[in-house]
């Protein structure tokens, strides 16, 4: 009984953050992992104590990028791949705002790859949540830069001849100061990693492995949403354990947890110090 009440309260937290009006229903397929991520984001934001007015949520184009429309923040649903550049403008113009970006693997790493690496490089204080489902969901299942070699998509109907990106490695190499990975199976971990990303001053990337059972699952015979999410669980290895595993052992595994954190200066802060110096005539 007590747990039931607690559960109810918990879910009300989510309802509190849904945008009033006619935003619903979502465009997402039943069981799509993106909904689970939205849930995790809400719970993390709720813990920060930030007001809704202070939060800007930007996104590009894709199933994942629809999220800001459903949430009761300042929503900037932009063009495909460009959300980090838009978000850079928002954050730099008003550093007091908390700026988040929700993006997909295609949005962030293909068309938006350049903005992605440069946002990391600047270490601008943006919390970027990358919903990686290894495929283009919105356009119907085409290959993306994270589609594994040999996986099927509608544009790799025989085999994927390309190699894939690991977004977290890319982010670390490019200069992001907080980099984490989790999956939609690991809801509490997701919430914690997003929360810590929000609290971190600098560019934070939280990659969440999400299920597109409609396309990736179907084309690769991975079954329905439940089966795919279970598979994420099976294949996940916490970073602490992964450290003592060989490359062969880690083949096909999803390493989860906080992968990288570095205390370093943040872009807007440094620019402000430049402004202060120039204004003092130094």
């Amino acid at each position: 009984m007590a747990t039931a009440v607690k559960e109810k309260q918990k879910s009300n937290v989510v309802l509190d953050y849904l945008r009033p009006g006619k935003a619903m229903p979502t465009v997402w397929c039943a069981g799509c992992g993106h909904g689970i991520v939205m849930n995790g984001i809400i719970r993390a934001i709720d813990k920060t104590g930030l007001s809704k007015d202070e939060i800007v949520m930007a996104s590009g184009i894709g199933c994942s990028s629809r999220m800001p429309i459903y949430l009761d923040f300042n929503a900037l649903h932009t063009t495909h791949g460009r959300s980090l550049a838009f978000a850079t403008g928002v954050k730099f113009a008003r550093p007091e705002l908390k700026v988040m970006v929700v993006t997909g693997d295609g949005d962030a790493l293909a068309i938006g790859g350049n903005h992605f690496i440069h946002a990391c490089r600047r270490n601008i204080d943006i919390t970027c949540i990358l919903l990686n489902n290894y495929i283009y969901g919105m356009t119907g299942g085409q290959g993306s830069p994270t589609t594994p070699s040999q996986a099927f998509s509608t544009t790799t109907p025989y085999d994927n001849a390309e190699k894939h990106f690991e977004p977290t490695k890319l982010a670390i190499a490019a200069g992001a100061s907080y980099v984490a990975r989790t999956t939609v199976y690991h809801a509490p971990q997701m919430e914690k990693l997003i929360l810590n990303g929000l609290l971190h001053r600098g560019f934070s990337l939280i990659e969440v492995i999400s299920n597109c059972h409609t396309y990736f699952g179907r084309l690769n015979r991975q079954g329905d949403a439940v089966k795919m999410i279970n598979d994420f669980k099976e294949r996940s290895v916490p970073i602490a354990r992964a450290k003592s595993m060989s490359a062969e052992e880690l083949e096909g595994k999803i390493v989860t947890g906080l992968l990288h954190k570095k205390e370093t200066t943040e872009f807007c802060d440094v620019y402000q110090s430049v402004v202060d110096r120039v204004q003092k005539g130094m």
């Binding site: 550049a85 403008g89 954050k91 113009a93």
Partner: peptide, 10 residues
């Protein structure tokens, strides 16, 4: 993109 972002930020 940044210009538009800055404009909506005021």
């Amino acid at each position: 993109a940044a210009v538009i972002g800055a404009s909506v930020a005021g």
